[in-house]
Design a binder for these strands. Structure first.
Length: 446
DNA sequence: TCTGGGGTCCTAGGACCC
DNA sequence: TCTGGGGTCCTAGGACCC
């Protein structure tokens, strides 16, 4: 009984009810309020009406028209979450957050050591739960068991606002009657596949031999589910998980078709990704553009650079080039830009101390040049122009016209103005104006 | 008005190398 | 001379999780 799993109950909705007493005891639904929003969290009062996470808001509204619909205040949720995580770290430094509202704790990392009896576990977990309610005003469900798997199953059983401790040796009694969907890693597709073989419960699953499961689900998935079905789980609680990708995506209220507009949007998404990379001190080699078409088919196009980049211009150029490989004529409902293959060093650093490196210095420019040659003369989101209104970004282009938004990194957003493509007023900006602002110099010490 | 946004991990095929 | 075998990297897609 060394692993503790904590899950805050209907977290976002609970925070809203805490801060707005008129919402207490009432159905509260937090999610996207736009035309294509989905439910992020439904309070327990809303769940009575069948409202669930990931359900479309339109369905939620028809099931529960009288609920309070809120878009969410993520800054507040982050702050509450930080308080909770801090309490967990007092219990043991070995904490693995899974999201804002969920974390594992390895109690073996605590100064007090692993609680030796179930009573002791109950005392520790009970105190934790009451501290959290006192300090944050939201309730937590807690599970404690010998492994991550069983701790998570236990906290699920404990919901809402409860505590379940699984004593060693009793795991299979609890696990085997549960539906296979209760196992982490069994989603709709895997459940449907297993159902065709009459596998409904975790106990059914445990009776399938490992080779059969591997045949059915593949090497990795088959092996791991076989082990989990027998409550065999030695995955460690790991504190320092480095992020592997950074991405940004937007779903539009209606499908978009204008190629110039799509290109401009991809360029802005690339800017947002670049901003987050720079802020985190990261750069990445592989750039991916995600496109969801009108019929929900999802395509991705990616390109890998010779060296990691975090530069807006590089990311924008590559992303728009990747988008141009996709047939968007039928309409696009979502665009996204992501960067993976991350490094925590920045290639164009001003002070590179290791003189032996790098040939990487030149190579990204080759990519940039290539990308440039494949694009029209005015590139949304990338080219900066200097016209009657002052400096601005090219926001859209095509069909003989160019849309300019008068804004640069150093000026606030200005008006959007449309020019004829051959308008003499439309001149490339002098080089010094080109954003982004110079990054603050970083010194590589190692 | 069906179906968000941020991630992780896996698979499969092809290129390329030894 | 008629066909290996393993490893790595890259791309695209898909399942899954919160």
């Amino acid at each position: 009984m060394r692993v503790l799993h904590l899950d805050l109950d209907a977290f976002f909705a609970s925070v809203e009810q805490r801060d707005k007493p008129s919402l207490r005891g009432k159905p509260v639904i937090v999610g996207g309020l736009g035309a294509r929003g989905v439910v992020s969290t439904a309070s327990y009062e809303a769940r009575v009406f069948g409202v669930r996470s990931a359900m479309s808001m339109s369905e939620a509204r028809s099931r529960c028209p009288n609920a309070a619909y809120l878009s969410g205040r993520f800054g507040v949720y982050r702050a509450v979450s930080a308080v909770v995580m801090a309490r967990l770290r007092e219990l043991s430094p070995v904490v693995e957050p899974l999201s804002l509202d969920e974390a594992f704790v390895d109690l073996a990392g605590s100064a007090a050591g692993v609680p030796s009896s179930a009573d002791e576990v109950r005392a520790v977990a009970g105190e934790l739960r009451s501290t959290i309610v006192d300090e944050t005003g939201v309730t937590a469900s807690v599970g404690v068991a010998a492994s991550k798997l069983m701790a998570k199953i236990a906290s699920e059983q404990a919901k809402p606002d409860g505590l379940v401790v699984i004593e060693p040796g009793t795991e299979l009694d609890l696990l085997h009657p549960l539906p296979i969907r209760a196992l982490p890693g069994v989603g709709p597709a895997t459940a449907a596949r297993l159902a065709r073989f009459g596998v409904k419960t975790i106990g059914d699953l445990a009776r399938i031999t490992e080779p059969d499961l591997v045949d059915l689900l593949g090497e990795s998935h088959g092996r791991s589910l076989h082990r989990l079905s027998l409550a065999q789980d030695d995955r460690p609680v790991s504190t320092d998980r480095e992020s592997k990708s950074v991405s940004v995506e937007d779903t539009f209220d209606r499908d978009l078709t204008d190629p110039a507009l799509l290109a401009a949007i991809v360029a802005r998404l690339a800017e947002r990704v670049a901003g987050r990379l720079v802020k985190a001190g990261l750069s990445g080699r592989t750039i991916t553009v995600k496109t969801r078409l009108h019929d929900f088919t999802t395509l991705s196009r990616s390109a890998t650079l010779p060296a990691p980049a975090d530069d807006v211009r590089v990311l924008s150029r590559v992303a728009t080039r990747l988008l141009s490989d996709v047939d968007t004529t039928g309409g696009v409902r979502l665009l996204g830009v992501g960067v993976s293959g991350l490094s925590d060093w920045v290639q164009d650093d001003l002070f590179v101390t290791d003189a032996a490196e790098p040939p990487a210095e030149e190579e990204p420019d080759v990519q940039v040049e290539e990308a440039l040659h494949e694009r029209p003369s005015w590139s949304p989101g990338m080219d900066v122009v200097h016209a009657a209104h002052g400096p601005g970004w090219v926001w859209g282009s095509g069909r003989g016209r160019v849309t300019v938004r008068f804004e640069t990194a150093s000026t606030p957003p200005g008006p959007i103005h449309t020019f004829a493509a051959d308008d003499p007023d439309l001149a490339p900006a002098p080089p010094p104006v080109v954003p982004p602002p110079p990054p603050t110099p970083k010194l590589i010490l190692e």
